[in-house]
Simulated scan of single mutants.
Amino acid sequence: MAELLAKLHDEQGRVTLPGFYDKVRPLSDREREIMSRVPFDEQAWLAGPAASRATYGEAGFSTLERTGARPTAEVNGMWGGYTGPGHKTIIPAEAHAKVTFRLVSDQRPADVGPQLKAWVEANVPAGIEAEVHTPPGGVSPCSSDLDSPAMDGLLRAIGQAFDTPAEDVLLTREGGSGPEADLVEALGAPLLFLGAGLPTDRIHSPNERVLLPMLHRGAEAAAHLWRELARLPRDSR
């Protein structure tokens, strides 16, 4: 099992499932330039939100790009054999592992399950039987259109709430789980994200927080956004 999981990435940190990157929408030079301007202290991030000592990921991409804009595979856990107190010199009869994949725009969860099953079948040693369970579901990824008129309205709304020129509002990609892709597909509407959190808010941690001044500014930006959207031509909303 350890050898199998080690093969999940190559020496460049890329996921080795055949076809995994076929539908990945590449980052444009413009997106990469915008993300490069986002203030980011990697050492502070490691010591704080990441709770780690070193970065790792796909070669050729920054830490921000790896964590928010490129697809990933994670080994959540592995177990097998006897793990209780004392000595038991046994050879485990079976081993288990749980893995997840974070996808990016144009990838689909329904494609990854078959890719994983085919990859496992091709990589298990002779004499080993493998079962791959891929529960139905998963969340389809999506991303906002930087050239959408609605995006311009969002930047103006944020600028008004935070007392800064709209052109100085920076953008980044962020991983998460939600129904946005389904809503975009069903409604044909532009996708906008308006967040008021900080990297130090420790989202989903036991000591998660939200700073009230940020929450108030976010609410103000949302109010400005409705006005900005109302000013757009009807066919661009």
Rank of each mutant, 00 (worst) to 15 (best):
L46I: 11
A47I: 08
A47P: 00
A47R: 10
G48F: 13
G48A: 11
G48I: 14
G48L: 14
G48D: 14
A51W: 09
A51E: 14
S52W: 03
G57P: 03
E58M: 15
E58C: 10
F61A: 08
S62H: 04
R70Q: 07
T72W: 00
T72N: 06
A73W: 01
A73T: 12
A73P: 00
V75Q: 01
N76Y: 07
M78L: 13
W79I: 07
G80D: 01
G81I: 13
G81E: 10
G84A: 14
G86F: 07
T89C: 13
T89A: 15
P92R: 04
A93H: 06
A97E: 04
A97S: 14
K98P: 00
F101H: 06
F101E: 07
R102N: 07
V104N: 02
V104F: 04
V104Q: 01
S105A: 15
D106T: 09
Q107E: 07
P109W: 10
D111Q: 11
G113Q: 06
G113L: 09
P114E: 08
Q115E: 12
K117R: 10
A118Y: 02
W119D: 05
W119C: 07
E121T: 09
E121Q: 13
A122S: 06
A122N: 02
N123W: 02
V124D: 02
P125C: 12
A126L: 14
G127F: 09
G127Q: 10
A130R: 03
E131K: 12
T134Y: 12
P135D: 12
P135H: 07
P135K: 06
G138L: 08
V139C: 11
S140E: 15
P141D: 13
P141C: 14
P141H: 12
S144E: 05
D145G: 06
D147W: 04
D152L: 13
D152I: 12
G153Y: 01
L155T: 03
L155W: 00
L155E: 04
R156T: 11
A157N: 01
G159M: 11
G159S: 08
Q160K: 14
T172L: 15
S177Y: 04
A181G: 08
A181F: 05
D182N: 10
D182L: 13
E185G: 09
A186K: 07
G188N: 09
G188L: 10
P190N: 10
F193M: 09
L194H: 01
L194M: 05
